[in-house]
Amino acid sequence: MSDILLDVEDLRVRFPGLSGYTEAVRGLSFTLGRERLGIVGESGSGKSMTGRAILDLVPPPGEVTAKRMAFMGLDLLSMPHRERRALRGARMSMVMQDPKYSLNPVMTVGEQIAETWRIHNPGEAGQARERALAMLDAVRIRDPKHVYDLYPHEVSGGMGQRVMIAMVLVADPDLIIADEPTSALDVTVSMQVLAILDDLVSQRGLGLIFISHDLDLVRSFCDRVIVMYGGAVMETLNARDLDHAQHAYTKGLLNCLPRLDRVDANLPVFTRDPEWLK
């Protein structure tokens, strides 16, 4: 098996509208190994749509095209939706944004973790509870048996997001996409959740696509960074080189970050160049 998990070339996502198409992603290309790839950009830059296109979850009537989209040697473009669904949750998965809304309110958290296992291992459904409990333990929940029977409204945001991670990892995927996994959490809780995610990704040697608009977070958490704007890639660089970014957009973004070691009366206003999208 090659070390390349995901190979995407010229990915485009577009939505038909009254006056022609709106392009959400315009020609994104990247390869992903067993590493952490950050995708950053402002709202509407196409980060989330990229994640959903990989999972075959672009909402209708959106259209996904690409020259190439392969996952561990499997051609995702020619694969029927049924098979894409079988991959989803089992081999590639996604950590959603806000556990308050992305967990089903009428199922216990344990059931929701067990469900992922059961869907992909119908022959071993009897193990589902055990697996879910083990996963709860793996995301450092102290009393898994107690938490298993809680409903989402009975757990805190941080615990909810750990449950989410457990649910995503229980079926042992190779690739996970984390779509702003900590934006709904406060800073300390978000650090704890990231530490857990970090450990699990390293232990299991997963490929991670980390979607965020938090540059500092991506810098410390990821190996490589793709900077997107308006659905297109502005620049791809190593996370540690982020401070030496070449592209005007990346520089502009970094420049807008408030800093403790400098007094800014006003943060600079960001001017976007339409030329970037040409």
């Binding site: 949750g89 959603m96 806000d98 809304y101 869907i119």
Partner: peptide, 10 residues
């Protein structure tokens, strides 16, 4: 959102 989660799970 939990519907998208269910689809993500496969």
């Amino acid at each position: 959102a939990y519907i998208l989660t269910a689809r993500v799970k496969g």
